[in-house]
Computed example of a mutant assay.
Amino acid sequence: MSLETVVEDIRDEARARAEEIRDEADAEAEEILAQAESDAEEIREQRQREVERQIDQEREQKLSSAKLEAKQDRLEAKRDVLQDVYEAVEAAVADLDDGREELTRALLDDAAAEFDEDDEVKVYGRADDQDLLESILEEYDGYEYAGEFDCLGGIVAESETSRVRVKNTFDSVLDEVWEDNLRSISEQLFEDQ
Rank of each mutant, 00 (worst) to 15 (best):
E30S: 07
A112D: 05
A36T: 01
I55L: 15
L68Q: 04
D26W: 09
Q48A: 15
R79P: 03
D109N: 06
T104Y: 00
D110N: 05
R53S: 02
F115K: 01
D39Q: 01
L68K: 02
V89M: 09
A91F: 06
D116Y: 06
V51G: 13
S65L: 10
A36F: 00
A111F: 00
R105K: 03
E87W: 15
A16I: 10
D56Q: 11
A25E: 14
T104I: 07
A34H: 08
D98V: 14
Q83F: 07
D110P: 08
D26I: 09
E50Q: 03
A106Q: 03
R74S: 11
E19H: 14
E19D: 14
D39T: 00
E42F: 10
I21K: 11
E50H: 02
D118F: 03
E90V: 06
A25P: 04
E60F: 04
A66W: 00
A27F: 04
K71C: 14
G99C: 12
Q61Y: 06
A27N: 12
L82V: 00
I43Y: 00
A77E: 14
A106R: 02
E60P: 06
D109W: 01
E19Y: 10
E50D: 03
L63G: 11
A25S: 13
R44Y: 01
Y86K: 11
D23S: 13
A36S: 05
R53V: 03
I43W: 00
E20A: 15
E52L: 11
E31K: 06
E114P: 07
E31P: 04
L107F: 01
E37R: 03
D110L: 04
E90P: 10
D98M: 12
D98Q: 15
K78A: 03
R74Q: 14
F115H: 01
L63M: 14
A113I: 05
D97W: 03
Q46G: 09
E69R: 07
L82Y: 00
A66D: 07
A25V: 11
E76C: 15
D84L: 13
E76P: 07
G99T: 12
L33T: 01
R47Y: 06
V93F: 03
A111E: 01
V89F: 07
L68V: 02
